[in-house]
Amino acid sequence: MLILFAVMLAGAIVLWVAVNGMMLFFNRISTRHYDESAARKLIIGGGIVFPTIVIAALLAWGLSIMPDQRAPGDGLRIKVIGEQWWWRVEYWPEGAETPIVAANEIRLPVGARTEFNLTSAYVIHSFWIPALGGKMDMFPGRETMVSLEPTETGVYRGQCAEFCGASHAQMAFEVVTLDTADFDTWLAAEAAPAMAPEGAKAQRGAQVFLAEGCGACHAIRGTEAVGEVGPDLTHVGSRESLGAGVLEPTMANIADWIAHTDDLKPEVEMPAYDDMPDDDLMALATYLKGLK
């Protein structure tokens, strides 16, 4: 893929210089008189023979590397559902009957090909992790597939590439690639229910969460919160970003997010809790940040 790009880029530069150099030469520099048979040769050679050969070669090359990006995976499947404007993520390890549900972040093992089954809840989105591969659209009522095989560990950014409404720009996610062992450890932790709140502030935060009715939309496994409208928050504290790739996941940002969702993400469905007392907000943020 990179070689393909490099070759195309170099070819494009050479051809651009050649064609425009030719125009400049005939327009301004050359004073020689040419006859028409030379002109006709130029048209046939430059207009038909040369491009046909070059393009045929390029086409054959491009077609031959196409299937790579849709190769079947090595076992783990991740189902990603585009929501307004966040990502519902389900991990389906080989043979699993129920998924491990998460949101707005994807973790992948290095050295294995992971299959992504993509769909959408309302409108069309496009799933794209620039550093790892090409994009694939997500349609409501239809499932598409792309497979990725990261080779290095690291943190990357993914984002929605198909315009999907007001907050299209704010629909991103973090991708963390891990060694297989680290990944397995992480996945086991992700499958577990949420940790109990530690400390008074966090416990108060857990009460605020339930009292404010957050559980109607958000699920925190192991608690009474089982809502499925919004992102699953069971392990929200371990994520690398907040609000689907919008903010750094600091405590202050969590509080800011809850109080001013609409400012940070226009037309978002979650209401802004801007009349919530600061104490409650900070308690809630502490609780959520603690959900590792």
Binding site: M1, F5, M8, A12, W16, W61, M66, S126, P130, G134
Partner: peptide, 18 residues
Amino acid sequence: LTGVMLAIAPFNWAVHDT
């Protein structure tokens, strides 16, 4: 010339909608 590049599907997947 960038059109020629974009017509190659694998490259297109990388830069489509950018």
